[in-house]
Design a protein around this nucleic acid. Structure first.
Lengths: 111, 111
DNA sequence: TTCTATCCATAGTTTATCTATATATTCAAA
DNA sequence: TTTGAATATATAGATAAACTATGGATAGAA
């Protein structure tokens, strides 16, 4: 039996960037937000999350800053950059183009 | 600049299985069909296609048979099995569940 | 004080896709 | 007639993303 994936591969960076359009947020909060808004369908494992955040930093799509949370915990807050916002737009367009194309294949009638 | 992917990772098996609901077909024809029906958005590279077909055979979701094409060429025709049809249903449900969840994240309003 | 939730991070594995390459045949064009 | 494009299969090796499994640390509640 094939196990259900936690994510659609290739969509994690987009989901993180989108989450950061609301406000700067730390990694743990990003993962929580994605899980909650998706009604528990999408789960971001730590082993996927932190490498993804490193990628985004390296690309200059987010910047990071250590701060204290409301509950007095040390956390690294990520903020979307201008380039990151642009990148999000590109990724969303491409994603929509892809799922529309997949939709055409899936809806193609047999017989 | 990130290169546009040819496919959304994780969706190829589903696309192949769906293509085979129409009629048995050889690998080359499957790739052509997906490309055509998707309006050239989805391109299945040979290095993705043939390993995918091996996976599907191994899982018992398709069976294969060598035949001659209409143009008198030797080709391996793949046929969807009962299990393959069932699997397709599962994969389509899961895919739709995922994209609906991603849609909720993407549509979440900032501000 | 012990457990749960919050928070970060990396090492190593797995898996899918892609690039590149190899082989072979048919048919049309030059 | 030979050359190239399209048809057809397949694998090896590289790349990249995600996952499993760890490890560490602190706050606050029970």
């Amino acid at each position: 039996m094939a196990k259900k994936p936690d994510l659609l591969p290739g969509t994690l960076d987009m989901l993180i960037l989108k989450t950061l359009t609301r406000a700067p947020l730390h990694g743990y909060g990003i993962a929580q937000h994605i899980k909650r808004i998706s009604d528990d369908v999408l789960t971001v494992e730590e082993g996927s999350l932190y490498p993804a955040l490193q990628r985004l930093l390296l690309q200059g799509w987010v910047k990071a800053e250590w701060k204290m949370t409301e509950t007095n915990r040390r956390a690294r807050y990520y903020t979307l950059t201008i380039e990151g916002r642009k990148q999000l737009g590109l990724e969303v367009s491409e994603f929509e183009r892809m799922i529309a194309a997949i939709g055409r294949v899936l809806q193609d009638q047999e017989a």
